[in-house]
Design a protein around this nucleic acid. Structure first.
Lengths: 119, 119
DNA sequence: CAGAATCCAATACGATACTG
DNA sequence: CAGTATCGTATTGGATTCTG
């Protein structure tokens, strides 16, 4: 059998396989706010408030959720600088920077092809 | 002002702008099932049942919803061949084929980088 | 075969108000 | 500043059963 990774001791990974963990990775990245967040951090670390301003319309709750998920998956780091007022910085990891490339492709495609869409 | 498209008579499109319609396009593509469906159709038209088998674990309801959404956005076409038993084919449009490229990048990244993720 | 119908669980999303 | 807490809506996802 050619299909992969459903058993755990797979040889190849396949997002089309229901049980392949890489499908979860796909679901993590194939998400509006993830794509925007990672893209925003591509040019350097940002603070919570800066992200909130860049990602127009995101609520603090959703932004927090998104950041936590990405942090748990090691796509970004959260660094606290003890100070008053509080200073927290989010930065992409190497893994996050690696993921940023294909995501940029999606964002760019959306911006460039919108005129080809039906009303 | 540099920011775009929020007013409707924009000059540029920007997925970071809350009201830019291209953010909806991003949301449409940045979705697990959309990415898998479009990828599956990349190598040629497929029938409902074939898609359902390829996209392991997808329910008929979700598959139908996904296909309808993509059809409404003109990323794919639905062709009915009157016959018994019924024969329906889904195929990418030019627009869909165009979107397939960046999406392939995401799928490939998920499959190739999964080992770099935390347990 | 291709899906529509139904029901339900999970989660994403959003607005607002409040706190260390 | 950087969130957390809370509440409510909406969308997604999933299982099952049924039908043109």
């Amino acid at each position: 059998m050619a299909t992969s990774c459903a058993t755990g001791h797979h040889d190849r990974h396949d997002v089309y396989a229901a049980l392949c963990p890489c499908r979860d990775i796909l679901a993590l990245l194939a998400n509006k706010w993830s794509a925007l967040t990672i893209g925003a951090l591509e040019s350097g670390p940002l603070r919570f408030g800066e992200l909130q301003r860049l990602l127009e319309g995101v609520s603090p709750k959703v932004l927090t959720q998104t950041l936590r998920r990405l942090e748990d998956s090691a796509l970004l780091t959260r660094t606290i600088y003890p100070a008053v007022p509080l200073h927290v910085e989010y930065a992409l990891t190497d893994l996050g920077r690696s993921a940023a490339e294909p995501l940029a492709g999606i964002r760019a495609w959306a911006e460039q092809n919108i005129d080809r869409f039906p009303a």
